[in-house]
Nucleic acid binder design. Structure first.
Length: 468
RNA sequence: GCUCCCAUCGUCUAGUGGCCUAGGACACCACCCUCUCAAGGUGGCGGCACGGGUUCGAAUCCCGUUGGGAGUGCCA
C-alpha cells in the first residue's frame, strides 16, 4: 500500500443521480486527480435486494457523463457494501469481545417507554452492565465512552461533540444484520479509505463513526463535510419539489462540461474574474479548505447561462455533432424529412440562439415540415400590417428568378423597402411568418436560402391564400 | 425539545486586520450593434443581518442577539 490518498464516493440510493451527489463526486474526482489518489465508488446498501444492476449501471453512466471514467486507473469499484456483511458482523463481535459493545434485549417500544418515563432522549444505557449474551431479538449496542469527541474537518475546522449527547447506538439488529454506520466504517477501513468527502448532513453522525474507527484500532480518516445544495426556499434539494436528477438535465441538452463547471462554482470559485474554466484548471486549483461553509442555491438560470456559453464555445462541427441526439429524438417532424445538409447550413445561426440543445429542434422545424408551422399570435400580429399583402406579392414574384443567395434575397426585400419607405425591420415580419410560421427565429434570408426556392415560393403563395 | 452547522449584492462567489470608496459572475435595467430573436459591446442598479467588544485600524478576530439550515431510527 502506497501513501496515495483514497477518496470514497457513495451515491445515496435514490433511483437517480442527484446533482448534489454529482458535485460531491466531482470534488472527490478532482482531488484524486491532483494527488494521484484513487476514487473509490461504493454502492452503499446493506440490503442486497436494493442493489439493482440498473441502478449501478446508471451511476456509472452518470459518472462517465461527468468525465469520471470508470476505466481510468484512478477509478476503483464499484464495491457493494452488502457483499461484506460477514466482515461487518465479525467486526461487531470483536467490539463486543473487547468490551466496546454490549447486548440489549429491549424492544424499540420499551426503549421509547423508558425514555418517556425518564424524560430523557433516546436509549439510556439500560443493558450496559447486564452482561447479556447474544441471542435472538437482542441488538448489539456500542458503548459510547465518556468525554468529548473532536472531529477535525477540512472545511469546517474543529467540531466538538460531548459524548453524553450521543446514545449507545445499535451496531447489529435483533435479526443479526449489521447497521449502516458499522458497515460503513468497516468497509472504509477494509478499503483503506483516507478521505471522506461528503455532504454536510452527515456531520452529526461523524463522531459515532470516528469512535468506531478508534474502537476498531484505526486512526480516523480525513473528514470534509461540504455544504448542501438548496432550493429557493433554502431547503435541501428534494426529489419531490425540485429538479434534482442529473439525467434529466442531460436529456434536456445540458452539456456535461457546463454542468461540471457550474457544479464546481457552487461553494467554491476559481481564481480570477471568470468562473468559466476548463476542468484541468479546476483540478489544479480546487482545495477543500477553500470550500464555502454555507449552503448554495442551485440556480438553474445560471446553469443555463453557463450552458449557453459552452454551446457558443464549440466549433461549428462540434455543435452539429452535439445536436444529433436531440434531432434524432424529436417528433416535431417526420424523421424521413430531416436533411442533414440543411441543418448544417443553418446550424451556425442557431448556435448563438439556444441555451440548451433541447431548444434546437423547435428552432429549425420549419425547414423539415411540409408547410410553415403556423403560430396564430404571430400571424395575427404580422399580417395586420397594411402592407402585408403587398410585400408577400412582391417577394413571391421577386424570388422566382433572383440569384439564390441570402444577400440576393435580402436585395429583393431591400428594393421594396426603398420604393415604399417601409423599414426593413417592419417589412420582414410578414415574410418571416409566411416562411417560418413564427415572429422569431434564425435570420430570415439565410432561412429562405436554406429552405429552397420552390418551398419558399409555395409558402409565400400559401400565406397569400390564407390572407384572403 | 436536544445536538451540530451556517450568515458578503436577489443568486453564486472574491475577500483570511490596513491594498475595500468591498471585486467578479448570473439575473435585472439602459444604450450601442442589428432583418426578428439571440449573440456581442458599453454602462447602471444592488451587499458585509444586528448589537457589543478587541485593535491605531475590522467584512475579516471574540461574545451575544436574530435569522436560516441539517441531524436526531433495530433507514441509508
Amino acid at each position: 500500500m502506497s501513501g496515495a490518498p483514497r477518496y470514497r464516493f457513495a451515491p445515496s440510493p435514490t433511483g437517480f443521480f442527484h446533482v448534489g451527489g454529482a458535485r460531491t463526486a466531482l470534488y472527490n474526482w478532482a482531488l484524486a486527480q491532483r494527488t494521484g489518489g484513487t476514487f473509490v465508488l461504493r454502492i452503499e446498501d446493506t440490503d442486497e435486494s436494493r442493489n439493482s444492476p440498473e441502478w449501478t449501471r446508471g451511476i456509472i453512466d452518470a459518472l462517465a457523463w461527468l468525465g469520471i471514467d470508470s476505466s481510468s486507473p484512478a477509478f476503483e469499484g464499484p464495491h457493494f457494501q452488502s457483499a461484506n456483511a460477514a466482515l461487518h458482523v465479525e467486526a461487531a463481535m470483536r467490539l463486543w469481545r473487547e468490551g466496546h459493545a454490549y447486548w440489549c434485549d429491549l424492544t424499540p417500544e420499551q426503549v421509547q417507554e423508558r425514555a418517556r418515563e425518564s424524560g430523557r432522549q433516546g436509549y439510556d444505557g439500560y443493558s450496559r452492565d447486564r452482561g447479556l449474551e447474544p441471542g435472538p431479538g437482542r441488538v448489539l449496542r456500542f458503548r459510547v465512552p465518556e468525554g468529548v469527541t473532536v472531529v477535525e474537518d477540512l472545511v469546517r475546522g474543529r467540531v466538538e461533540f460531548s459524548n453524553d449527547t450521543i446514545e449507545d447506538f445499535v451496531l447489529l439488529r435483533g435479526n443479526g444484520t449489521p447497521m449502516f454506520l458499522l458497515a460503513n466504517v468497516v468497509d472504509d477501513i477494509e478499503m483503506g479509505i483516507t478521505h471522506v468527502v461528503r455532504a454536510e448532513e452527515h456531520l452529526p453522525n461523524t463522531p459515532k463513526q470516528q469512535m468506531l474507527w478508534r474502537a476498531l484500532g484505526q486512526p480516523a480518516p480525513v473528514w470534509a463535510h461540504v455544504p448542501v445544495l438548496v432550493n429557493e426556499q433554502r431547503k435541501k434539494l428534494s426529489k419531490r419539489r425540485d429538479k434534482v436528477a442529473l439525467e434529466q438535465y442531460r436529456d434536456e441538452g445540458i452539456l456535461p462540461a457546463a454542468m461540471v463547471n457550474y457544479l464546481m462554482t457552487l461553494g467554491w470559485a476559481p481564481a480570477g474574474d471568470t468562473e468559466i474554466v476548463p476542468w484541468e484548471r479546476i483540478v489544479e486549483e480546487f482545495r477543500l479548505e477553500d470550500v464555502n461553509h454555507s449552503p448554495a442555491f442551485f440556480d438553474v438560470k445560471k446553469l443555463l447561462a453557463f450552458n449557453g456559453d459552452y454551446i457558443r464555445m464549440m466549433d461549428p462541427a462540434g455543435f452539429i455533432d452535439a445536436c444529433a441526439p436531440v434531432l434524432a429524438a424529436t417528433d416535431l417532424w417526420p424523421a424521413s424529412r430531416f436533411d442533414a445538409e440543411c441543418f448544417t447550413a443553418i446550424a451556425p445561426h442557431v448556435q448563438t440562439r439556444v441555451a440548451v440543445l433541447g431548444e434546437v429542434p423547435a428552432m429549425v422545424d420549419f425547414l423539415f415540415l411540409p408547410d410553415a408551422p403556423l403560430d396564430d399570435a404571430s400571424w395575427d400580429k404580422a399580417m395586420s400590417a397594411d402592407f402585408a399583402r403587398e410585400i408577400l406579392v412582391d417577394m413571391a414574384s421577386g424570388l422566382v428568378d433572383c440569384e439564390w443567395s441570402a444577400v440576393a434575397i435580402k436585395g429583393v426585400l431591400d428594393a421594396w423597402c426603398e420604393r415604399t419607405g417601409v423599414k426593413l425591420g417592419k417589412a420582414q415580419a410578414p415574410v418571416r411568418v409566411a416562411i417560418t410560421g413564427r415572429s422569431v427565429g434564425p435570420p430570415l434570408f439565410e432561412s429562405i436560402e436554406v429552405l429552397g426556392r420552390e418551398a419558399s415560393l409555395a409558402r409565400l403563395r400559401s400565406a397569400l391564400g390564407r390572407l384572403d
